[in-house]
Design a protein around this nucleic acid. Structure first.
Lengths: 267, 267
DNA sequence: CGTTAAGTTGATCCTGCTCAAGGTCGGTGG
DNA sequence: CCACCGACCTTGAGCAGGATCAACTTAACG
């Protein structure tokens, strides 16, 4: 049973039922994911040993903002977050949606400022690993460095997909593409979830900011897709009625679309 | 002296003078960059020992195409390359320009197909390191895994910048932004190069494909910038006449713009 | 000096933005 | 249980940034 009534807080800080899934749903795999994925018991103990502790962030709160210095690496244990950039005049670009298992805050220019911010979409929990502990840790357990490299390169690969989408696809294609991505990642995280009733803790404005459109236009595209009986997205509920149709609208090779689901770590 | 007349081949395969800079210019720092950056003599020997050899790629040639399987990691030693994606109908998105020192071909889904291609802008040389050698290498020398992670996260950071640019900036801002990026990276690679005469082996079509515009519109924007006396970009020659003006057009915080130049590795 | 890639410019069209006004959902407080 | 409120969604009208199509010019190489 997935959607037991465990309340959480949304962006406004009010209780709502949008993030109702139990901890076991939002974060079940997290401790086995991210940096700990495929780790030996020894490594797990070492990581546990050097971590500072967990940090909770309410929905709408920032893990860190743009331009802050950041001396830790975070392993997202529970909840959804997103990475973003904001220009002077308020235009916002969402760079990445982070699901449990994501590694956050590892960026070049260590002492220096971050060039993006991280905000919680739902109430979230991150495991804090001080930056200083990382290097000795990777010296003792060499697998950790490679696993980090692999995780970041996976995110990079997603960023490349987004670049292609924003740079060269039409609004319709972009929306379809993002919904598919969210579905695939949701499903990889919580297999068994139903395709016709997913809780994606994201508004239409988030979607627009992620794919370089205005919320108004995103809404129009979603209306069309709804009228065509392909998907429904309404108040953070995603229902994919016609998966093949959606893949078609996205302009994806159906085979490639399936390959998305099978990105597994080294070995 | 930087621009000695050592010919290379351009996209058409003809000799030209666009890549005239001597090997010492295009690739001088490469063997000290990338995976080898900051490596101890021991590590250097180990990397040298397990590499398969160098591979040369003529301008316009592919290091690997989209959908090929790729069982090696490449260290770009000499030349410029770019990562790209092509949609079914021919639309192309350039994901990243790679300069000497770049690590190429490290991507998730190892045995699986690549999701992007890599093409040479100038005659290039890469050092080939078999994928199988990488893991034992990183076990023996833990620093290598972390260095890899750092390198990839630097590329990721650039991809985030590009996402922000394409998603939320106007055509004018995007062009200015990319020219600044190319200048900064060029300068970091070949300090001492003149700001009013840089050889950037990239056409206006490449620029368009990198920032999600048509070459026609890129041309119009460049015409405006030229008429305003800010930059000239003509036949792969970039001249920045008014750096502050360019930073202003890009809508960048001047201080942040300078910070770009100082991304250094861990420790 | 011919050839070809690359750059340039104009006219026209269309996708997606802006501005503005409602409508709906869901949580809260009476 | 109902009324209220704020966040979120929805729709229309008009506009504009950038795309498309097409023709022409220029630079660089052989």
């Amino acid at each position: 049973m997935y959607h037991a009534n465990i309340p959480a807080r949304d962006l406004t800080g009010r209780r709502n039922c949008l993030a109702r899934a139990p901890a076991d749903c939002w974060g079940c795999q997290a401790r086995r994911n991210g940096l700990c994925e495929g780790a030996t018991p020894d490594e797990l103990r070492a990581i546990e040993g050097c971590k500072w502790g967990d940090r909770e962030i309410g929905a709408g709160g920032d893990l860190f903002g743009i331009g802050e210095s950041c001396d830790s690496v975070y392993n997202l244990v529970e909840g959804w977050m997103f990475l973003y950039n904001i220009l002077e005049d308020g235009r916002r670009q969402i760079l990445h949606f982070a699901l449990p298992g994501a590694v956050l805050g590892f960026h070049p220019g260590w002492g220096a400022m971050t060039t993006y911010g991280v905000q919680a979409l739902t109430d979230s929990v991150v495991c804090v690993i001080p930056r200083k502990a990382l290097e000795p840790l990777s010296k003792r357990y060499p697998g950790i460095g490679m696993r980090l490299a692999w995780l970041i390169s996976r995110d990079n690969s997603l960023a490349f997909d987004h670049l292609t989408s924003i740079g060269r696809r039409s609004a319709r294609e972009r929306v379809a593409h993002l919904l598919l991505e969210l579905y695939v990642r949701y499903y990889a995280q919580w297999p068994g979830g139903r395709i016709d009733e997913m809780q994606i803790p994201v508004t239409q404005e988030h979607i627009g900011d992620a794919i370089g459109l205005t919320l108004v236009h995103v809404n129009r595209v979603l209306r069309d897709l709804r009228q065509e009986g392909i998907v429904e997205f309404h108040y953070r509920r995603l229902r994919i009625l016609d998966p093949d149709g959606l893949i078609d609208v996205a302009g994806l090779d159906p085979q490639l679309a399936m390959a998305w689901m099978s990105r597994r770590p080294i070995e």
